[in-house]
Design a protein around this nucleic acid. Structure first.
Lengths: 199, 199
DNA sequence: GTCTATAAAAAGATAGAC
DNA sequence: GTCTATCTTTTTATAGAC
């Protein structure tokens, strides 16, 4: 990693943290420069405007949160299905909880998405990836006879909504068992036409 | 309503809309003054600082979104329970969808809550109101023999999470049947020890 | 209550030396 | 690549007349 690559990475990292801590709008080039340890105009060598910087951080974020990053369709079998779904969801929650800035930065960009088409398009695609991904999972579960035919799209969307928004909830309320909530959401969906797991 | 009360109401209304449309930070006294049709310093007669204005809009918002505003415990009986829960949830979704600014403004304040203790405290209290409110509802449902004993707190929290965050989801994705998602979430919870409604 | 005028601070951004 | 110096614009906020 060259010196200039290091500076670039440092600017991005510091910006990401500041976006979470004080918000995108209130993050200034002065603050970034001070935190990185360079002069304010030096940032313009890497990002010709603040708008560019905001977009660059966004691109990095988008890459990390695709549905396929956390849910591999092939790992689901008739026998492990519900268990696997619980496990991968919890893994996703854990991964995102590791990064103390993630939820706040994502929410910052969610609000930007309501104001700028560029951000709306990209986040919508990711969101649709989750909706569609869970629909596919429900199809597979239906094929295995693990869930009822009824409203399987709504079931899929409910799961996507719960998982995607546990992070939002975590921002405010700390002392809750989020994993249990996910277990409950999944279990509610699979209680329909249970062929195997009757306790 | 006196002239001065009208001006005050207008400042608040315009600010609320601007908070949604361009964000709290990017909303300036110039923009507000222009939209209201007064001079910029006139706003200082009503709000001695922008900070004060932001807090005032917040207080108004908080009053409108208490758990008890939407869920009246006494209306739930053994026979109407699931149906009532679905109905009141949908009513809440409808009410909030009527106000095109609501979700964005709330999310703005959610982010403020992660940065300022004042906002954190108030929103946390509201959130806890929902969590506790749904816990009480689950207790009542348990008492009626409508849900199983297992993980009833997690069930309650799952419902609170789904309902509170449908709004967040609606900001981004428009074409989804949110009511069906709520129906599905409720139905998943009640599928446990179903004494009456066996189809 | 509402205005005009203005102060004080800070923002995003550029010029140009090294 | 990184710096110092500087420009322009806009912000929140105040003073004081009407």
């Amino acid at each position: 990693m060259s010196k200039s690559e290091e500076t670039l990475a440092s600017i991005k990292e510091v910006s990401y943290q500041l976006f979470a801590e004080v918000g995108i709008t209130k993050t200034t080039y002065s603050m970034i420069a001070k935190a990185v340890g360079i002069a304010k105009p030096s940032i313009y060598y890497y990002f010709k405007s603040k708008e560019d910087l905001i977009a660059a951080i966004f691109e990095d974020l988008c890459s990390a949160i695709q549905f396929s990053t956390f849910f591999e369709m092939d790992t689901f079998t008739k026998d492990n299905f519900e268990e696997k779904l619980v496990e991968l969801g919890i893994h996703m929650i854990d991964e995102q909880a590791k990064d103390p800035y993630y939820n706040r930065v994502l929410q910052e960009y969610m609000l930007m998405a309501t104001r700028y088409p560029f951000y709306h398009e990209k986040l919508l695609m990711i969101q649709k990836g989750y909706l569609h991904g869970f629909e596919m999972l429900m199809e597979k579960a239906k094929h295995f006879g693990l869930v009822s035919d009824q409203a399987s799209a709504a079931k899929a969307h409910m799961l996507a909504l719960v998982l995607d928004n546990i992070g939002n909830f975590m921002m405010l309320v700390e002392h809750i068992d989020y994993k249990q909530i996910w277990v409950e959401a999944v279990s509610g969906v699979f209680k329909g036409s249970d062929a195997s797991g009757s306790k």
